[in-house]
Design a protein around this nucleic acid. Structure first.
Lengths: 163, 163
DNA sequence: TTAAATTAGTGGTATAAAATGGTTTGCATT
DNA sequence: AATGCAAACCATTTTATACCACTAATTTAA
């Protein structure tokens, strides 16, 4: 099975911070988690809200979050600046949340505030992870992305970038 | 399993020095301690307050505190300067505290004074350990961390640091 | 190709757990 | 006996989780 997060969609978030996770994302998360976790962790996903350079949430299954964690531990000794920076970004500025029986997750207040989320949120599949955005911020970001590589060359099809 | 301390939160500390430990941290501590300790030690955590170069508390389950201890013993013979320094930092300047039935711990006066803790304290998950901060000091530190690696290169996503 | 069944998304309420404040008890030390 | 502190106990508020219900869309089966 291709465990690739795809597509974009908009969901409601209620006043308590509950949001439905797109059903196909849920399936991927659970399938990925089965590779690594215990029974208890099957419904877990990790959300990195990061620092002020990012205005969206980055969401991972446990496999990828663990890969990042192991990477940090093995490459940067405790106490070094990069280690502290990365631990802070990926661990302090993150949370683990559960998928509830209805397929929703609960975003805590501080995370909602940080990502400026209101009644509607956008999901965007990014292959091995997916993102959650404030709708306006998401449109802005899309415009930025569309503007990229315009000047380098005339791109009629982005596949040329793969050459 | 997800024995990774994540996230940041603020808790109240009362006049006696009692602080609730975030529930997910408690679960991790107890699970980790089960790997090594006796029944009696299950609710124990180690708090390193260190010397005056650090203004926060570093908190470990018994597994990590033991790992650090073994490391010091095996690498540095008794009587050497490094051994004395490390013993002092990690053992003299530390305490072991218990998690009470309500999920709180009691921070002794000298530790509170050392870390400049008042009515509110910040918790910050750091993967294999977590930290406790005076809120103002914590904000300062966050600013420092966010400023790091800005100049090295344009980092839109800290994941590039893992390359 | 229509009717029934399932799944996805959403809203509300009830329950359990977490955080915290206060009081009391026990045990040392003076 | 009086003091200081830590441990245990109890109560309240807040927050997270579980549970149930409804609608719309999609799939399955007759």
């Amino acid at each position: 099975m291709l465990t690739i997060f795809r597509g974009e969609s908009t969901h409601k978030m209620d006043q308590k911070g509950r949001v439905s996770i797109p059903a196909d994302y849920r399936r991927i998360i659970i399938e990925e988690n089965a590779k690594v976790g215990k029974e208890l962790d099957q419904n877990t996903l990790v959300i990195v809200f990061g620092d002020n350079r990012q205005s969206h949430l980055e969401c991972y299954p446990l496999t990828l979050s663990r890969e990042i964690h192991e990477n940090i531990k093995s490459k940067f000794p405790r106490g070094t600046p990069k280690r502290e920076f990365l631990d802070n970004f990926f661990e302090t500025k993150s949370i683990a949340v559960q998928i509830d029986p209805n397929g929703r997750m609960l975003l805590p207040q501080n995370v909602r505030t940080k990502a400026e989320l209101g009644a509607n949120v956008c999901f965007a599949g990014k292959g091995e992870s997916f993102q959650i955005w404030n709708p306006e911020k998401y449109s802005q970001r899309q415009k930025e992305l569309e503007g990229m590589f315009r000047d380098d060359e005339v791109i009629s099809n982005p596949l040329v970038l793969l050459e």
